[in-house]
Each structure stands twice: as structure tokens, then as C-alpha cells.
């Protein structure tokens, strides 16, 4: 988030005071969001677990991309794609589950949401296995 305000100060043609307030706003938003996030996670262990899993997936996806960049080759492209997309897919599924754990949707109880998450993950994994050869 922090590098963004710098760009703004360059592009904004108006007085630098507005740019300063924008930077201030960003800082405050960042601080508040972080604070409430910490509160949220410490109150519910399941959220913590989901978030650790999410962070793990981001790391795995990053490692794969880095590896691809290092060997300068995309050769088994389907393998890379399936490895990368399953990280993204599992990530969004986890976030969807997280949203429902926080605040269940109308007509979808928490237990059912978890069951649906498991089914969707299985389908995702099956497709990936098929694609990865």
C-alpha cells in the first residue's frame, strides 16, 4: 500500500497539501485495517488457520513463479499452470469459506458451507491432477 501515495504525489497537479492528506488517509486506513484484522484473528482460531493456509498458498505460488523465472523456461506449461491455478483456486475457495465463517450466508449454514468447500476443493484437485499429467 505504501508505494502508491508516492505515485499520486507525482501525478497530482493540485497543491501538495491535497497529496499530503491523501497519504495521511492511506496511512490511517492501513493502520485501522491492520488493527481490526488482528482483533478478528485472535478471537477465532479457525480464521487464523484459514489465513495461515492462505499465506502458505501465496508462498507456494510465488516459489513456482520464481522457479519458472529462474530456469527461464515454461516448458511443461500445463504443469506450471495447474500448479499456479490450484494455489489461486484454493486461495479463493478459502476466502469464500472465511467470509462464510465470519458471517454465514442466508440459507447456507456453516456446516454446509464447509461441506461445499470440501467438494469444490476435491473437484479442483481432481482437475489439477488431470491437467498436470
Amino acid at each position: 500500500m505504501t508505494p502508491k501515495p508516492k505515485k499520486i504525489t507525482k501525478t497530482a497537479s493540485t497543491a501538495s497539501s491535497t497529496a499530503n492528506t491523501v497519504t495521511q488517509d492511506f496511512k490511517e486506513a492501513y493502520r485501522l485495517a491492520l488493527k481490526s484484522y488482528k482483533e478478528q484473528v485472535s478471537s477465532d482460531a479457525r480464521l487464523k488457520l484459514i489465513d495461515i493456509f492462505c499465506a502458505f498458498l501465496v508462498v507456494i505460488a510465488g516459489v513456482q513463479t520464481l522457479f519458472m523465472a529462474l530456469i527461464r523456461d515454461t516448458f511443461p506449461f500445463n504443469a506450471f499452470l495447474s500448479g499456479f491455478i490450484i494455489c489461486v483456486g484454493q486461495f479463493v475457495l478459502l476466502i469464500s469459506l472465511r467470509l462464510q465463517v465470519q458471517e454465514p450466508f442466508e440459507g447456507v449454514p456453516k456446516n454446509r458451507a464447509f461441506g461445499e468447500f470440501v467438494i469444490a476443493s476435491l473437484i479442483l484437485h481432481f482437475t489439477t491432477l488431470h491437467f498436470i499429467n
Partner: peptide
């Protein structure tokens, strides 16, 4: 969010 991202991730891969 949950409807679209789930659809997109699984649908694209499939």
C-alpha cells in the same frame, strides 16, 4: 465474491 471466484477458478482450469 464466493460465487464468481469459485466459478472462475474451477471453470478456467477445467
Amino acid at each position: 465474491y464466493s460465487a464468481y471466484t469459485t466459478w472462475y477458478a474451477i471453470g478456467t482450469l477445467a
